[in-house]
Amino acid sequence: MEHYTMNLTLKVWKQKNKNEKGRFETYPVKGISSEMSFLEMFDVLNEQLVAEGKEPIAFDHDCREGICGACSMYINGRAHGPWHNTTTCQLHMRQYKDGDTIVVEPWRANSFPVIKDLVVDRSSFDRIIQAGGYISVNTGNAVDANSLPIEKQKADESFAAAACIGCGACVAACPNASAMLFVSAKVSHLALLPQGDPERKTRAVNMVEQMDKEGFGSCTNIGACEAECPKGISLENIARLNREYIGSVFSGSSDKA
């Protein structure tokens, strides 16, 4: 495709801090290359704002290669923008044409309070992991990688679930602001492996209890999370989480870890 430049109008959410009420600000941006990433477009805008003596827009980013999950932006009604299986940093400006207006909002969920502008606090995810997203390993020499036989299919499924980067797009996209896809990915990648077995009976229950405590909504199987997840985490993981949950309720030996 031909390289081209464009002028855009950006409507971006500005919010001073957690407690202040936010509002939309409109910014014209000029001379954006179709080769730029969406975040590079924001860099251009921020440089322009700094040059004008204004405050730049705060947004989260880190790896800029689609693996860290930091770049949370809700773009024209879509988590990470309109591209499938893509984070904001991997969304490119060739998606847009000259004269477009783009509305950018932060993730919106009570459990992800806005810290500033587009930056939200996702530490609720960390606390869910702390509640059960771990395994017990003894210290000492590293065990030979091949000492534990694992079925190829299970290894693959576990790997696919482990691809979750904790970005929170599932919560942002879910009409209920539910974190089930995230939690299911974190439960699944451990539940499928023998290393995850010791805590198996308590993991799902503890993580689900923490998820509820953090104030996420409950899953009604709408599926917007799967449609928006940049890592293609499947709803089958939610089915597995449900099975793990039911399993630990029925197994009887499910005292708190």
């Binding site: 809700y74 009604g77 969920a109 009570n110 009409p175 209920n176 539910s178 917007a224 449609a227």
Partner: peptide, 22 residues
């Protein structure tokens, strides 16, 4: 669940990511 969103989105995905009846 409605209350869990807090502030509503100005632009929402609508039918692009899920079915209206769901």
């Amino acid at each position: 669940n409605r209350a869990r969103r807090g502030t509503r989105y100005a632009v929402s995905a609508g039918n692009q990511t899920s079915r209206w009846y769901s």
